[in-house]
Design a protein around this nucleic acid. Structure first.
Lengths: 190, 190
DNA sequence: ATTGTTTTTTACCATTTGGTAAGCCCTCAC
DNA sequence: GTGAGGGCTTACCAAATGGTAAAAAACAAT
C-alpha cells in the first residue's frame, strides 16, 4: 500500500530510497466501507488522504437538503478539502466512500513536519495539487453547455471505471440530474 | 496602472520598493475593445495578463459550434490559460474582452527571468494561482444541482458587478442557458 | 438623422427534465 | 426461506428549458 504512494509521487519527482522510508512513515493506513465518512463537513479538514484503493466523493448538502457530488477521487490520487486544509477554516464539503476504500492519511501538522525534514516535498505536493485542480476544472468545464444525455456520455468517456464502480444515484448527483432521469438516459440514450 | 498590479501582489506578500520597480518593468501594457481577442485558442498561451480594468472571459467553442464561457475575470486579477502557459501545450480556450479592457502582460520567458531575479516571486505567484483555482472551483460548484433561475440568482449574489457590466448573452453562456431563457428569467424570475 | 448590425425581448410550440408514485430487484439480516 | 430496506426502473403528468421566429430596442458607423 505504501508502495502505491511512493510510485504516485515519483510520477512527479524521483525520490531517493532513504527518503521513501521517511515519507511512508508519516502516513497512517485507514479503511472505510461504502457510505462511510472519511471527513464530515462543518469542521476543519486536517487530513490529507492518499486513496490506495476504492473511490471517494466530495459532497455537500445544498439549501434544499439535496446531496450534491462535487467530484469523485479514485485510487492513486490525493484527496482533501484543500481550502479548509490549507487555510485552516471549516469546510462545507464532506468526503464519503463511494465504494469500499483504503487510504493512507497524514495530518496537516505532520505534513508540515515532513516538509521540515524533506523541504523539496512541499514543491512536489504543490505541483501535484495544482495539476489536480486544473484537472478538476477541465473536467467540470467539459460538461458546461451540454444536456443531461451528453454530460453522461462525456462522463462515460472520461471516467469509464468510475461509471462502473459507483452507484447510479451518485453519478446522477455528480451530473446534476435526478436518478430517474439518469436511469431513463441509460435505457434509451435520452 | 502599474500600481494596481503591485497593490494586488502585496495582498499576498509585501514587496520591497526597489523590487516593485523591477516587477513592473517586466510587464507591458495592452488595451482591448469589447469583443477583441486577448488570446486565440489553438496555440500555446505564452502570456500572463493582469487585468487592470474591464472584464475578460475564458471561452471555448464546443462540438456544436456554440460558444461556452468558462469564467469571467475582472480587474485586479491575473488571467492566463494556465494548463497551456505552464505546460507549453496548445490551449483550447480563448480569452476575450467582455468589456473594454486594459491589461499588463508578461510572457512566460520573461516571467521565468523575473523568477531568476526575484526567486521569491515564484512562490507568490503560485500561491495566488492556487487560491484563484480554488475560487474558480468553488464558484462552479455553487451552481451544481440548481435550476437556471437559481443559478442566475447565485450569480447575481456572487458577482453583482459582472452581472451589470457584461452582455446578457455572455452571462447566459456562462450559466449554461440560452439568452432567451435568461431574458425570461430576468423578467419574471423563472 | 439614417442606416445597418447586434442584442434583447416576446411569443409559440417541441423537447427535456423533474416530481410523484408504484413496482421490481437485489442484498442482507434474521 | 422470509421479510425489510435500499436502489433501480418505469410510467405518468407537470414544469422548465430549448428552438424557431419575429419584433423591439440598443448601439455603431456614416
Amino acid at each position: 500500500m505504501e508502495n502505491t504512494l511512493i510510485n504516485f509521487i515519483q510520477l512527479f519527482q524521483p525520490i531517493p530510497a532513504p527518503d521513501q522510508t521517511v515519507i511512508t512513515s508519516f502516513f497512517e493506513p485507514g479503511s472505510f466501507k461504502e457510505g462511510d465518512y472519511l471527513f464530515r463537513g462543518g469542521k476543519t479538514c486536517n487530513d490529507l488522504f492518499f486513496v490506495c484503493s476504492g473511490i471517494v466523493r466530495i459532497v455537500v448538502i445544498n439549501e434544499k437538503g439535496v446531496e450534491v457530488t462535487h467530484f469523485f477521487v479514485k485510487e492513486n490520487h490525493l484527496c482533501t478539502i484543500l481550502s479548509s486544509f490549507n487555510n485552516q477554516i471549516p469546510a462545507d464539503e464532506s468526503i464519503l466512500a463511494a465504494s469500499d476504500t483504503e487510504v493512507l492519511a497524514i495530518t496537516r501538522s505532520r505534513l508540515l513536519t515532513l516538509y521540515k525534514e524533506l523541504p523539496y516535498m512541499k514543491e512536489v505536493i504543490d505541483r501535484i495539487t495544482q495539476q489536480r485542480l486544473l484537472d478538476k476544472i477541465r473536467t467540470r468545464n467539459s460538461y458546461l453547455g451540454n444536456d443531461s444525455a451528453t454530460r453522461y456520455k462525456i462522463f462515460l468517456e472520461q471516467e469509464p471505471d468510475i461509471a462502473r464502480r459507483v452507484p447510479l444515484k451518485d453519478i446522477a448527483s455528480y451530473l446534476g440530474i435526478t436518478p430517474q432521469s439518469l436511469s431513463r438516459i441509460r435505457k434509451n440514450g435520452k
